Amino acid sequence: MLVNLNEILLPAKKKKYAVGLFNSVNLELARGIIQAAEETGSPVIMGTAEVLLPYGPLEELSYFLVPMAKKAKVPVVIHYDHGLTFEKCIQALKLGFTSIMYDCSTDTYEENVRKVKELTYIAHQFGATVEGELGHVGDNEGSAEGDSHLSDPSAFYTDPEQAKDYVNQTKIDALAIAVGTAHGAYKFKPKLDFDRISAISNSVDIPLVLHGGSGLSDDDFKMAIQRGISKVNIFTDINDASAIGAQNAFADGKKCLTDMIPYEVEAIKKAVISKMKLFDSVGRR
């Protein structure tokens, strides 16, 4: 069933589990994600990001993402992640996406508030929810988001008091916070500021989001969720799983695309189920 963020994240916040966002740029990824959710009885967030549009155009993705969510036996949010332009965010809403993350985190605080507040008002007219970002989650080298490097990442961490003001002004439904993660695959183990997660969670009354989740340890995830994270973004792990599925197909002598697809879908499904179990969203439909 097609839902928005509030319908699955508010229960997650209350009961201290998290729901995964798994990005999809093609049908194989979408099938693996939905199959994992239905097999485990887990709510799920599925979507794409603006930086991923070269691999799967937004309108074309909507042709199957939205109908698959409507037919699913579990709650499914179709989410447009890291929307960088107002125009693309509006297009996603018109195409039936039920959630938008409008990323204005590199703007000044005042511009971030102004732009996200405007989009939130519009999205709520569609019955959709909005995720904003305060602070800035960096990028690991080779990540889909880019190759920027922050010499002092902690300088971009989310401030708890500012988070309270940001939420009050913008009226967003979920807040992405910067606490030590980065997009893409990690070369070195990240160090999360768990106390900061707790402080932010105590200062706002909406669900918190952890970006840059691929590559974190199981203990990192569990502690972050206990401290207040209700949504975790995953792409690199399932993107890698899909490639491994294709490699396994070649190893088994499969050389046609149609022979490779089942391997890819199964590998994606297993990777997603692993995360759903870790986030404790299994059976929370």
Rank of each mutant, 00 (worst) to 15 (best):
E87L: 11
G132L: 03
E131Q: 12
L65Y: 11
E133R: 09
E133M: 07
Y63P: 00
A123Y: 13
D107G: 01
H79N: 08
Y109T: 11
E131C: 14
A123N: 11
N112K: 13
I78C: 15
L119G: 04
H79M: 04
K88D: 01
C89F: 01
E60T: 10
L61K: 00
K73W: 00
K115H: 08
L95G: 07
I100R: 04
L119N: 07
A123H: 09
L53P: 12
Y109H: 11
D103Y: 01
I90T: 03
D103R: 01
A128S: 14
L84S: 05
A72Q: 05
K115Q: 14
S62Y: 05
P75W: 02
T108P: 06
Y80I: 06
E59G: 00
E118L: 12
Y121V: 04
I90W: 01
V76T: 08
C104Q: 13
S99R: 01
F86E: 00
V74I: 08
V130G: 03
A92T: 09
G132M: 02
A72W: 10
T85M: 04
L93K: 05
K94Q: 15
F86V: 04
T120S: 13
E131I: 03
T85Q: 07
L134D: 08
I122P: 09
S105C: 02
S105F: 03
E110C: 04
Y109K: 13
Y80G: 04
M68D: 03
G83C: 10
F64V: 02
S99Q: 05
A72G: 12
L61H: 02
G83H: 02
L93A: 09
T108Y: 12
G135K: 05
E87H: 15
K73E: 04
E110Y: 07
D103L: 08
A123L: 05
K70T: 00
V116F: 14
K115Y: 06
G135L: 07
L65I: 08
E59I: 01
Y109G: 11
E111S: 10
M101Q: 05
K73Y: 00
E131V: 12
I90P: 01
M68Y: 07
V130T: 13
I90S: 00
L95F: 04
L119W: 05
S105I: 04
V130Q: 09
E110W: 10
L65D: 02
E111R: 12
E131S: 12
Q91C: 09
F86Y: 15
A92G: 13
E111L: 11
G127S: 09
E133G: 10
H136N: 13
L61C: 10
T129W: 06
Y109V: 13
G56H: 11
C89N: 08
D107W: 12
L95M: 06
Y80D: 02
M101R: 01
D81W: 05
C89R: 01
L65P: 15
L84C: 08
G127P: 15
T120Y: 12
I122G: 11
L119I: 10
V113Q: 07
F126P: 03
V130L: 08
T120Q: 09
T129G: 11
V77W: 00
E133K: 03
K117E: 14
Q125R: 08
Y55M: 11
I122S: 03
H79F: 15
L119Q: 05
L93W: 00
F126G: 05
G56P: 15
V116K: 02
R114P: 04
K115C: 10
